[in-house]
């Protein structure tokens, strides 16, 4: 199902036949797709369609029931022993493999006992064991990059939602991940605060970061995403470039979803 792999390049993310159920309720019902390095993929679909769960599975925050997830060439959650048997990763292995990815969550979840700077330094310091001065310098650079150099010593409680989310993005970037995961990063924000977060994400996309973004911001998906995946009842019912999905949705579920989120107003065709 590799419609988006670029020729001659191993995909950065492979999701293959992934299934997941919670207490007998199927949430992911055989999800497969590939993401090339540098691509921005938007996950759209109504709530409960499995987008967030999939993101959490990729970040190893939820175990999958069946299928396979490969990130940067490494099988996630499993490893093969010399005798060829596959065994589950230990907690330590999981922690190591999570470094391929960084998640930016809907609720920011900054460490509330730390300043913005300390939040960004935490990963490099504790996980990568960078020396303190280098971790601090890196964190300062990243805060400057998201436009918050002057808030380095503020605690999360003193920052606006948009600022908190930008710190969370800097914190994720500090680990130098191969893939950035965004789980509805703007849905807890007022539109004007969402704008500053989206601007930061746009910049990251332009820099060539591989990004998987669960979003309800269709304008953002249309403008920034290389590929849009439409989720419906635990499956991907449609995928393709945003222009196609948004202007000529092939699947009934996509048409209904687009009609609902855009308030029934027809989308202007042909963006950019």
């Amino acid at each position: 199902m590799s419609t988006m792999g670029r020729a001659g390049q191993a995909p950065m993310v492979v999701v293959d036949g992934v299934r997941k159920a919670f207490h007998g309720v199927t949430v992911l019902d055989g999800i497969s797709f590939e993401v090339a390095a540098g691509d921005v993929v938007a996950f759209i679909g109504s709530s409960g369609s499995g987008k967030t769960t999939l993101l959490r599975c990729i970040d190893l925050l939820e175990p999958i029931d069946a299928g396979r997830i490969v990130v940067a060439g490494e099988a996630m959650g499993w490893h093969q022993q010399p005798d060829g048997r596959w065994v589950r990763d230990s907690e330590r292995e999981l922690a190591r493999k999570r470094q391929h990815l960084s998640m930016v969550a809907q609720g920011f979840h900054l460490f509330s006992h730390m300043t913005a700077l300390e939040n960004v330094m935490e990963g490099p310091l504790t996980v990568k064991r960078l020396p303190l001065p280098r971790a601090r310098q890196l964190a300062q650079e990243l805060l400057a990059k998201v436009g918050l150099a002057d808030k380095a010593h503020a605690r999360p409680s003193k920052l606006s939602g948009g600022q908190q989310q930008r710190v969370a993005i800097a914190r994720a970037l500090a680990m130098g991940p191969e893939v950035m995961l965004f789980d509805e990063p703007t849905s807890a924000l007022d539109p004007e605060l969402a704008g500053e977060v989206l601007a930061t994400m746009r910049q990251l996309a332009a820099e060539g970061h591989t990004m998987l973004v669960v979003t309800h911001e269709l304008a953002f998906a249309r403008e920034v995403a290389d590929v849009v995946l439409m989720f419906h009842e635990g499956r991907i019912v449609e995928q393709g470039p945003p222009q196609e999905i948004f202007t000529r949705p092939a699947h009934e579920a996509t048409r209904r979803f687009l009609a609902r989120v855009t308030g029934g107003v027809p989308q202007p065709t042909g963006s950019s």
Binding site: L61, R92, L101, M103, V127
Partner: peptide
Amino acid sequence: EAAKSLGLTG
């Protein structure tokens, strides 16, 4: 979870 996602161990 944010800490987990960064790669911190338990």
